[in-house]
Simulated assay, not measured.
Amino acid sequence: MYYQLYRDSQGYWRWRLKAGNGQIVSDSGEGYVNKADCLAGISLNKGSSNAPIYES
């Protein structure tokens, strides 16, 4: 898996987490004005791997 960092059509930074076969597993859901903020969003996503899972 890998993260893809890109700019959308409005110029906002976004990220996608892609599987090895190119399928999108997750995405940012919001656009970031600053590239550094987008990279921080990726770090938050990476850091949440130990978060519990709750079913509702």
Rank of each mutant, 00 (worst) to 15 (best):
M1S: 12
M1V: 13
M1L: 11
Y3L: 02
Q4F: 12
L5T: 02
Y6S: 11
R7W: 03
R7A: 07
S9Q: 15
G11M: 13
Y12Q: 10
Y12T: 01
Y12M: 11
W13E: 01
W13A: 02
W15K: 01
R16Q: 15
K18F: 07
K18M: 14
G20S: 12
G20P: 11
G20C: 05
G20R: 13
N21W: 11
Q23P: 05
Q23A: 13
V25F: 07
V25H: 05
D27Y: 08
E30W: 06
E30N: 09
E30Q: 12
E30D: 10
G31A: 03
V33A: 07
V33E: 05
K35M: 09
A36M: 07
D37V: 00
C38A: 06
C38I: 03
C38M: 02
C38R: 00
C38D: 01
L39E: 11
L39Q: 07
L39I: 10
L39V: 11
G41E: 01
I42W: 00
S43K: 10
S43I: 04
N45C: 07
K46H: 08
S48N: 12
S48A: 12
S49N: 13
P52L: 08
P52W: 04
I53T: 08
I53H: 05
Y54G: 06
S56T: 10
